[in-house]
Design a protein around this nucleic acid. Structure first.
Lengths: 138, 138
DNA sequence: CATTAAGTCTATAAAATTTGTAGGTTTTAT
DNA sequence: ATAAAACCTACAAATTTTATAGACTTAATG
């Protein structure tokens, strides 16, 4: 399941995408519209900024805005940023790989192969679908 | 990510599948071979029993054993039993459906449709693959 | 029929993770 | 100079996951 953090991130991105023409948008505006705690959202937007999706302007009249085209923001990147691995097992994760501590031998772990399949099919979708698709569906 | 509970369940099922001919097998034997806390595994095996995958025998000489064919134990059922929903959003879960509290309107939630796709592709694999496939891979 | 070895059950504790908060700092428009 | 906004770090609260405790039931066996 996606964490609240990730869901909030999508809400914020969607909101910013919808109001792209309006320049910098206040954290407060987003947090109020979506019933998200201001401070919590602050952290999330900051992460999205550091990851290169958002720009910001400080001081009076400041706020956040998209600096990437919605088509250039695949869902997979947002999920990975806020939630971590997409794979169901660490030993199968592309971005957060770790050997499973339970299995002594990964090559002959029965789950491994199946979970690679699941990962690949999931990524096919989450890497192809972008913020643009979400915006269009709304 | 799958929880430890689910991973332990798969290890136990695999072990029981491998030693199907040996009759009832002690919790302790499984917990030792896989480095799982005895008591923790106990709870897991009990759940698997209540769900109809395992049988057990009490008292001296007792233990657990598979009562379903490995081909009749899809991975999806084990994951759902121990971990809960497979879907990435509650509003898209087949077995644990709940409306998302963040979205007022699910029909026009942009994520909804994508996550239905992810769910379906994931389930295609996890419902088709069974304990048998895991046993064969080991 | 007493003993011992096993699973059953319920409750609780510990650890880890996620979610949320506090409060000061920096930047900028006016 | 002031006020409004993002930035940053640390911490606190809540929730979930993982693990433990201990009493109860059942069955085999000498």
């Amino acid at each position: 399941m996606l964490s609240k953090k990730t869901k909030y991130a999508f809400h914020a991105l969607t909101y910013l995408g919808k109001h792209k023409d309006k320049g910098a948008i206040l954290i407060q505006e987003i947090s109020e519209k979506h019933g998200i705690s201001h401070k919590f959202l602050e952290n999330i937007l900051l992460e999205l900024k550091k990851a290169g999706f958002l720009g910001s302007k400080k001081g009076k009249g400041g706020g956040y805005y998209l600096i990437k085209e919605p088509t250039e923001i695949p869902l997979s990147r947002i999920i990975r940023l806020l939630d971590g691995p997409i794979a169901l097992l660490p030993c199968v994760s592309l971005n957060y790989y770790e050997p499973c501590d339970e299995c002594e031998n990964q090559a002959q772990c029965g789950l491994n192969r199946v979970m690679i399949k699941v990962r690949d099919e999931t990524l096919k979708i989450l890497e192809m679908k972008t913020l643009k698709d979400i915006l269009e569906n709304e």
